[in-house]
Simulated assay, not measured.
Amino acid sequence: MHSQEWAQLKDALDRANYWLLVPVLGLLLASHWLRALRWKQLIDSMGYNTSRINCFLGVMIGYFVNLGAPRLGEVVKCTILARYEKVPADKLVGTIVAERAFDVVCLVIVFGLTFFFQYDVIHTLTSGKLDALFRTASGQTSYIKILMLLAVAAVLFFIGRWFLNKFSHIGPVGKVRNIIINIWHGLTSVKGVKNKPLFFFYTIGIWCLYLFSTWFGFFAIGATSHLTIIDALSVLAMGSVGMIVSPGGIGAYPLLIQKTVSFYNVPAIPFGLALGWLLWFGQFLSFVLFGTISFILLPRINKKLHYQIIAHEGPADHPNENI
C-alpha cells in the first residue's frame, strides 16, 4: 500500500470502537466452551469420563499453540488430556478427526447459506453468467440444463471415486483418498455418542456464535455498521478460509475480509481492510488471552483436584467428571 493508504488505514483503526471487542471476546469464549463440551462427548463415547474444565483448557491451549505452529496445537491438546485424564493419546487423535470432519461440513453449509441468502450479490459479481447455467435463451428456467449439470456432477463423482481407488498407490492420490476416508470415518463416529441431539446442538451453537461475533465486529467501524447478520455469513465463510490457508489467519484473513465487504459498497481501503484486521485481532486476542490463562490454570486446578481426591478418598474412576 502507498503511504497515503497506510495513513487512511491507521485513521480508520484509530476511530474504531474497541470496546465492542468485549462482547466479541465473550461470544468467542462461549464458542470455545461449546467446542470443549462437544469434544468431551466424543471422548466419553469411547468409555472415558473426562472433566469439562480439562477439555476446555486443552482446547484453549491447542488454539494458542496453533498460532505459532499450525496443527501442532491438536497434538498438544491431545497430549494434555492424555496426561491429566489418562486417556490414550492415539484414541484422542480419532476424536480430532471427527471434529474436523464436522467443521468441514459446517463450512460447506455456511457457503451454501451464503449462496442462498446472498444470491443477488453473487449474481452481480458474476455479471449474470451464473444465470446462463440455469436459463434458456428466452430467460426461463431450463430444467434440462439443471438435470444435465446434476448428471455431470454425478458422473464426475463416480469417476473421481474410481480414480482414487484405482491409483491409491500413487503418493498424492493416496493422501487425498485417506483424507476423504478420515472425514467419512469422523462423520460416522458420532454414532457412538449417547446424546446425539446435544452433539448437533453444540455444533450448530459453535458456528452461530462465530456468526454473531463476526456481526458484532461490524459495529466497531462506522462504515461497516450497516452490514447485516446475513452479510456476516459471507464474511464468516471467507474468513474461515483465511484461517485455514495461513498460520493463524495472519495476512490472508484480513485480505479476504477486505475483498468480501467491498462487495457491499464498503471501501476496501481503508474500511474493508480495517475491519479484516480488527476481526482477526479479536480472534488472535482470544487465543492469546484465554490460552495463556489456560496454561496457568491447568496444573493448578489439577493439583487441587488431586489433593481433594486424596483427602476424601474419592472413587478412582474420575471424581471431577462434573466440573
Rank of each mutant, 00 (worst) to 15 (best):
A30N: 11
L113D: 12
V22I: 13
I309D: 12
V190I: 06
L130D: 02
I180G: 03
L305C: 11
L92F: 14
V288G: 05
A223T: 01
S127T: 06
N195E: 13
A132E: 13
I122R: 02
A274E: 08
Q41E: 15
L285F: 13
D14T: 14
P88I: 05
R52P: 06
M238P: 03
N66E: 09
L278S: 11
V24C: 15
S234N: 11
R35E: 02
L236H: 02
L113C: 10
I229W: 01
I144N: 04
L255P: 08
V22F: 14
L156R: 00
L285P: 10
I230D: 14
D14M: 13
G217H: 10
L113W: 05
W19K: 10
Y210T: 01
P267I: 04
L37K: 07
G139T: 03
I310L: 15
I96M: 15
C208P: 00
L156F: 02
L279C: 02
L305Y: 09
P197W: 02
V235A: 13
G251S: 00
G239D: 01
F56I: 08
G276I: 02
L164H: 03
L256R: 01
A89T: 11
S262N: 15
H318K: 05
I309G: 10
H2S: 04
D231G: 05
P315G: 12
G249R: 03
I122Y: 10
S142P: 04
E85T: 15
D44G: 11
D231T: 02
N49P: 01
T136R: 14
A153L: 04
L209D: 05
V152H: 01
I80Y: 06
A98S: 11
H226G: 15
I144K: 03
G192F: 06
S31H: 09
W207K: 03
V155R: 00
S189N: 07
F102T: 10
C106N: 09
L133R: 05
I96W: 15
T292K: 11
W33P: 01
N17P: 06
I250Y: 00
Q308Y: 13
E321S: 02
A268R: 08
S127K: 05
V173N: 02
L273A: 07
A237F: 00
Y264Q: 09
R83Y: 12
L211D: 07
Q8F: 10
N195D: 15
R52H: 12
T228Q: 05
G47Q: 05
N66Y: 08
F134E: 07
T136D: 15
W19C: 09
I146Y: 00
K259I: 15
L275W: 00
H185W: 03
A132Y: 14
P270T: 12
P172V: 08
V22R: 15
A12W: 02
G217D: 15
V176A: 12
N178A: 03
G73H: 06
W184S: 05
F102Q: 13
Q4A: 14
I109S: 03
V152M: 03
Y307D: 10
V261Y: 04
K10P: 06
N165Y: 11
W19P: 06
P70V: 03
T214S: 07
F201Y: 00
I323W: 13
F295I: 15
